[in-house]
Nucleic acid binder design. Structure first.
Length: 158
DNA sequence: GCCAACGTTGGC
DNA sequence: GCCAACGTTGGC
């Protein structure tokens, strides 16, 4: 059964618009073991992804994407010229995994982090837990639904 | 630019 | 295996 995820990207690095331009991309460069485990062990084709822009004003969810492949080893870990190169990774024993993403749609407006924090229905999200820095995190389908629905309404509406 | 909160590294 | 030092994330 398809599930929902939230994935963070700095738009200076890779923005939702870049995904629309590319049509498909490997979600590479995840170098955190907890996030890696989510990708490798739980992400499956058809899963819904809320695309979050971090390190930008305002931070928030800007679009919806979909997992479009099974997990596979991150090619960047084997590439000495990549900033994601990992000398300890081997083809036989890869450490890092990716899934491909395809764009679904840009949201009508950004659902900001501040707005998510202010919504009691979203207070259980990992995203708003203190100190959380995961770049890939699971979210409840109902939470994903609510964020997408919020984007259909003005920011001051509830 | 600051800095809190984490994760990782490496000496011992 | 402990833990101090260091690096990174990411909101503000």
């Amino acid at each position: 059964m398809a599930r929902s995820w939230l994935m963070k990207s700095e738009p200076n690095d890779y923005a939702y618009g870049d995904l629309e331009r590319d049509g498909r991309t490997a979600w590479d460069g995840v170098r955190n073991y907890q996030a890696r485990n989510f990708l490798r062990d739980e992400a499956r084709p058809g899963d819904r992804v809320l695309f979050y822009h971090s390190n930008v004003q305002p931070p928030g969810v800007v679009g919806v994407a979909e997992v479009a492949s099974e997990p596979y080893p991150d090619p960047a870990q084997f590439d000495p010229d990549s900033k994601y190169f990992d000398p300890k990774a081997t083809e036989a024993e890869p450490r890092w995994f990716v899934v491909d993403l395809v764009p679904v749609r840009e949201l009508p407006r950004t659902v900001t982090l501040a707005e998510i924090k202010a919504d009691p229905a979203l207070s259980e999200m990992l995203l708003v837990r203190r100190g959380n820095r995961l770049s890939v995190m699971p979210i409840a389908d109902a939470e994903a639904d609510r964020i997408v629905q919020r984007a259909e309404r003005p920011a001051d509406g509830s």
